[in-house]
Design a protein around this nucleic acid. Structure first.
Lengths: 191, 191, 191, 191
DNA sequence: AATGAATGAGCATTCATTCAT
DNA sequence: AATGAATGAATGCTCATTCAT
């Protein structure tokens, strides 16, 4: 009973409120006051848990990318081909993004504001870099600089989610596999 | 007659100043006063030419995308295959982006802020929609919703430029062709 | 008629409001908003005329010390003894202070806050430094470091005005001469 | 019994921390949190010992002036002339100030902020008021209102310490006597 | 069309104080 | 007595926008 926890997790409430509001109003349409109100917390409380706005946002970004990385780890299977792993993981990421659109919304807004030039999708895929490098040595994927491959593999994900958000079109789970295949075509070796 | 050019110059100077400053300081690091100063114009002058900041930014975005569209038209050749057109145009766009980084910088910042949800890369490629549709009917490219194809084709461009900007790696003109080929692989029909 | 001026002198109104309020509420009891209201000006207007609070305060301090320096120049007589000049000028300063108590109030608050360690009474008496040095060479005043002499000559003025303010006692114009004489006794050579 | 000392220590630690920090950062550059940290005490603890910030500061001021008064008592010698007592005590005060600059730093900052208009140097010299009055009756010092004499005697001390602090000049113990003599010249009867 | 001083709502942040533990 | 997370009013300052000239 005592360990219910959630009720008093002000730090979590703040981060969650920030994520929700940024999705709704954009990274720069959200003030600390708005976040505090959404989190049912006083304005000053945010500054107990975070040094300032920038650090709060970074913390949120790190939380989110970390969760994605965990997801990658969860879905990776050592005993299947690189291609199968790629398609599975790519699909799972896109599905996750579609389930809670706040995540990719936030990521693309954060990564594409000049806010923090170091925070881009490279970092996002860091844990599969190793797999990419191994695959490249085995001539399974194209012989390109790693960031180029990441751009080819991850660039479309953001674009797709963005389009899905502005209700340009729906993405069913069947489609997801198709897009994963298409991205695979982009990076796979032609030889 | 000769002096006519000067008349429109203030509006152009303002847009040019905005583009330069946004590239340097980010979409939200730039104030109207800064733009006015960079353009050698009084703060109030901007409001003679644009209703407000939002409209000025939209106007800038439209100007830029329009120029890209013109570029597409300039490079399109009726007598070559869809694939060759795709690769040529795709490459020219990326080269142009690399030449004046202010353009893709602005596009990615503008398109990925929640500023204007309708302004995304679909619009950017509108003039080649027709070509895409024709190609799809001929089974040359994958049978997917148009926005999905655009995401596959244009998504990586933004990602590449972004990475180039944060000096993750250099893109030589030789590479450009390779990335164009890779994007082609993503959308081309496998049948 | 047109040159009435006062009505539109917002910068002057701001400085005057600041002086009045600082006297009333202390250097740190006054907010920019209070000053703006007292000056019948919008909060932002202060920042058109001054870079920030600190510069506004420095500007006020400079204005005031400059006026004192002008006063010194006005009362200095080349054809009378150093002593007579000292007593006349010292008395005039004190009288001026008593007339508009805001001036010494502000000076002592500004000089004694750790605000700006460089702004102390030395600067206040800068224009008569020369006179002091000449008098010292002629053995008319004590052979001490200049700041020490200034402390002896000006220290009591601040103390007197401060006491007068907290209604400890009244200073008539007759008294003024006596205090001037006493300060003279402090610095004059005993030889 | 032995551990009794510890009990009062927190209050003392708080006052000591306040004094140190005020000297370093100024009366208004110090927050209650800073004081609590410096004193190794929780923020709330200060409010167990003091009603609020103002009372804490007043308490500090009283502590300090009381110590000065004790010092006066310690140095007063019934069997020597008023002049000799004045010079000795004046010198001892200045020396004490120079030894622990925190004391005069705090005094001048506190007394010259509008914090507490009643707290000025009169109070500081209260215990020697009696001596002054006796000396005045004997025509040893000038016939002026008591606060005026205090201004003449104590005003320069504050000014000197202030100047010493802003490193305008050094005060050696030999100089101290000279300044004491000068102050004596200011108040001594000329008859 | 052009100016730029003026506006005032809004922002991120601080801090004296409270109170449940 | 002691703690320190929480509060929320207040602060200095910015900036999109207006308007008299």
């Amino acid at each position: 009973m005592k360990a219910r926890g959630k009720i008093k997790d002000k730090k979590g409430a703040i981060l969650n409120a920030a994520l929700t509001l940024i999705t709704k109003y954009g990274l720069h349409g959200v003030s600390m006051k708005m976040i505090a109100e959404e989190a049912n917390v006083a304005a000053g409380t945010i500054y107990i848990h975070f040094k300032n706005k920038e650090e709060m946002l970074s913390s949120l970004y790190l939380n989110i990318t970390n969760e994605i990385n965990l997801m990658v780890g969860r879905h990776y299977k050592a005993n299947v081909s690189f291609k199968d792993n790629f398609i599975l993981i790519w699909s799972e990421i896109l599905k996750e993004y579609i389930k809670d659109q706040r995540v990719p919304d936030f990521i693309s807004q954060f990564a594409f504001s000049a806010e923090d030039a170091s925070a881009d999708s490279t970092q996002l895929l860091a844990p599969i870099y190793e797999l990419f490098e191994k695959a490249q040595k085995e001539n399974v994927i194209k012989n390109m600089p790693m960031p180029g491959l990441v751009a080819l593999a991850h660039g479309p994900i953001t674009a797709l989610v963005r389009m899905a958000r502005s209700s340009k079109f729906e993405i069913s789970s069947i489609d997801v596999e198709n897009y994963a295949e298409a991205c695979w075509d982009a990076i796979r070796s032609n030889q």
